[in-house]
Design a protein around this nucleic acid. Structure first.
Length: 724
DNA sequence: TTTAGTTGAATAAAG
DNA sequence: TTCAACTAAA
């Protein structure tokens, strides 16, 4: 078959990657080097040239968005042939396997998925049952503990508590597991992965089947994998497997979420003979932007090593602005955006403002609002996470499983039907005593006539409501079924009473839920046939929390955190709040590893930009109601000054200090160098000074050599000459 | 049960 | 400062 359409548009390195013989391949793909392209073309190559069947391909990503994009692009290359491929997120794929093999996994057929909020609520309830003080044992912390252990693949039994604290944590972990089981098989996100891993470990036949089936495994964003994801992948691989992995250690910014960059090295160790290929040509940014990014990331010591280059134009210098305050910073940014739009023809959506923490968006929103420039802030509550939607989903979950106590508690008095804390306390303690669910306990108490009249009537009504709704299960159409539930449970009516904008919003969201169900039904894949459409929809709601205010502002300035900017690109980027303590964040200052991750985050920010990059910081910033006086971020000082241009040399005292500091000679001897200066070394050739440490005769400078990479040299011996 | 007032925490966030 | 979660009063 003619495969020219797959490789013609690729550069040599990309082509080598796409056509690499089957086996173990790790692609170190730099920012903007055409990573997704290589991944999708590889899949197409396997189908068209290697003769692989779509059924033999497993492609794993981290986000639903990435999975959808990959599916779409592969389909665009090869057409419907791509049909049988398994493309999805780690969680989505694990979920699929668990649905198919729920029995072997020890789960009930209609097991429900807990999102982060559901999980925390369940932990809170577990604590209350055990009469443990929530302020001493914060649910958040316990949640973090449990998830971290699951991400490591460890059950409570596998822990080795070394003090009272870890012993208690282990107990709570165990109690939580029991609560999940008792709730009728509740599975949190981390559990999906761990359970699936255990499933494959414990079922050799099954494992063998999937190993044989998935001959080709493709993985995206490998630097973000955690321990259990790594182990899961390796489990699916045998000596015959073709494994194609793409990642960039320099863009690993989720260590705090359990991601292990080390997995990249580990893979090369664990899988001997792994072929490592590099994609280093960047198609996104100007030479200037790239040089800055390279100089910055060269400061990190633990790297696999990669040097991005481009044959594009040098572009504009990087503009640096020192603001008085965050208002001044916002004013500057918005002014710039206005002039870029008005005189340089940029669209509003070409401009992105990237910040370290969400709280920073405020000043920019105000400034944009004041200038009447439309904008869009990313992040925040997503559709399926909204309270009213979760209420509605809780009713649906109860229909599937009456013993789901978390859902029971959520809706027993929503909308208010006269069942308060008192009644609930009775229910809870009885349920605990009789070792049954709240639903069962309610039934028993009613039968025993043990509840006061008013509460009894209210509970009876609730039970009847659910039974009636359960009856309408016969309705085959999911959307119609949900509509009935919403109409009868009183949620719609409840919000109708709220005459404010908020109430209207919520009613609209509930209507939206119905149409979401309709859409879901239409596009639902046949693979979920194992399970009824309601259960499938609930799983979908948990696994895909949906977009935030999708498409509300099509052409607006884009505001988001650096983390959410990963994977995106913009013609114009404003990287703001470059202050010590904010970025790098003060929480990350103690440990070296975390500082390096902050630096990678800065690297990600810089490399988002195609043409224009603006950096700024504020000398005074209001944080938590207190004025803070900060200094410029070390990252700013780590960038070669030759690439930068100060906007509006304002020369306030502080300003002069910052910039002068950066350009200050690094050695006191006759051979003085400044950061960013070009130097020549007898052996290593030409390079750029990136940093210095020490003083006097022991002064060392870090030089990034064009050919030999970055090195630390003692000034006294290196005999560096300034470049002519 | 509802609501107003108090308290406490505040890095990033997909599934 | 802001926001969510919680407590006390109506």
């Amino acid at each position: 078959m003619d495969s020219s359409n797959l490789i013609d548009s690729l550069n040599a390195a990309q082509r080598e990657a796409v056509t690499v013989p089957c086996g173990r391949t790790l692609i170190l793909a730099g920012a903007g080097s055409g990573k997704t392209r290589v991944l999708t073309h590889r899949a197409a190559w396997l189908l068209q040239v290697e003769g692989a069947s779509a059924y033999s391909i497993l492609a794993v990503t981290f986000t639903n968005k990435a999975a959808a994009e990959m599916r779409g692009r592969i389909a665009g290359l090869v057409g419907v042939v791509a049909g049988g491929m398994w493309i999805g997120t780690f969680h989505g794929l694990a979920h699929r396997l668990l649905r198919l093999h729920w029995r072997e996994a020890g789960l009930p057929q209609h097991f429900q998925i807990l999102d982060a909020e559901d999980q925390r609520r369940l932990i809170r309830r577990t604590l209350r049952n055990l009469e443990i003080d929530e302020s001493r044992w914060p649910p958040r912390q316990i949640q973090g503990f449990i998830n971290a252990r699951k991400d490591e693949g460890r059950r409570p039994e596998a822990l080795e508590p070394h003090d009272a604290y870890s012993e208690q944590m282990r107990q709570l972990y165990r109690a939580y597991e029991e609560a999940c089981r008792a709730g009728g098989g509740l599975v949190d996100f981390a559990e999906l992965l761990l359970r699936c891993y255990e499933l494959l470990c414990s079922q050799p036949t099954l494992l063998k089947h999937y190993r044989r089936r998935f001959r080709h495994i493709l993985v995206d964003e490998f630097q973000d994998t955690n321990r259990i994801q790594y182990d899961w992948l390796r489990l699916l691989v045998d000596s015959e497997s073709d494994v194609f992995i793409v990642g960039d250690d320099d863009q690993s910014i989720y260590g705090w979420r359990g991601a292990r960059v080390e997995n990249m090295q580990r893979l090369q160790h664990d899988e001997a003979g792994t072929r490592v290929l590099r994609l280093e040509q960047n198609y996104r940014s100007t030479r200037t932007i790239l040089a800055a990014a390279n100089a910055l990331i060269a400061r990190n010591s633990s790297r696999l090593g990669k040097h991005l280059w481009t044959d594009g134009a040098a572009g504009e210098p990087i503009a640096v602005y020192a603001a008085f305050s965050e208002q001044d910073e916002a004013r500057f940014v918005v002014e710039r955006i206005r002039s870029l739009i008005e005189s340089e023809g940029y669209a509003r959506s070409d401009c992105a403002i990237l910040y370290r923490s969400n709280a920073q968006s405020r000043a920019f929103e105000e400034a944009l609002f004041g200038r009447e420039i439309p904008y869009r802030v990313y992040g925040g509550l997503r559709f399926f996470e909204r309270a009213e939607i979760k209420d509605a989903l809780a009713y649906l979950r109860l229909l599937v499983n009456r013993n789901d106590d978390a859902s029971f508690e959520r809706v027993i008095n929503t909308p208010p039907r006269g069942i308060g804390t008192k009644t609930l306390d009775v229910l809870r303690s009885q349920a605990r005593q009789w070792q049954m669910s709240l639903w069962q306990a309610a039934g028993e108490l009613l039968r025993a006539g043990a509840l006061p009249g008013r509460a009894a009537r209210a509970i009876t009504a609730f039970i009847e409501l659910l039974d009636r709704l359960g009856g309408s299960f016969a309705d085959p159409a999911l959307a119609g079924r949900i509509e009935t539930v919403l109409a009868q449970c009183g949620l719609h009516e409840h919000y109708a009473k709220d005459r404010s904008e908020r109430g209207l919003d919520r009613r609209e969201n509930l209507d939206e839920l119905i149409s979401a169900a309709r859409t879901f039904e239409q596009v639902r894949e046949a693979i979920d046939d194992e399970v009824d459409s309601l259960t499938a929809f609930l799983a979908h709601a948990a696994l895909e929390a949906g977009e935030v205010q999708a498409g509300e502002q099509d052409d607006g300035v884009q505001l988001m955190t650096l983390h959410s900017a990963k994977g995106l690109e913009f013609p114009v980027v404003f990287l703001v709040g470059l202050e010590e303590g904010l970025f790098p964040h003060k929480m990350a200052l103690d440990e070296r590893g975390r500082l390096e991750e902050e630096r990678r985050l800065c690297y990600v920010g810089i490399t988002r930009s195609r043409q224009r990059l603006f950096l700024s910081f504020a000398e005074r910033r209001r944080l938590h109601g207190q004025d803070q006086y900060g200094t410029a971020s070390r990252f700013l000082l780590e960038l070669p000054t030759e690439l930068m241009q100060e906007v509006r040399a304002r020369f306030s005292v502080t300003r002069a200090q910052t910039m002068v500091h950066a350009a200050e000679p690094v050695a006191t001897s006759d051979a003085a160098f400044s950061l960013g200066q070009r130097v020549r070394h007898a052996t290593f050739g030409d390079g750029v000074v990136l940093g210095c440490e020490g003083s006097g005769p022991s002064t060392r400078v870090q030089v990034n050599f064009a050919h030999s990479g970055s090195k630390w040299l003692v000034v006294a011996y290196a005999n560096l000459k300034p470049c002519p």
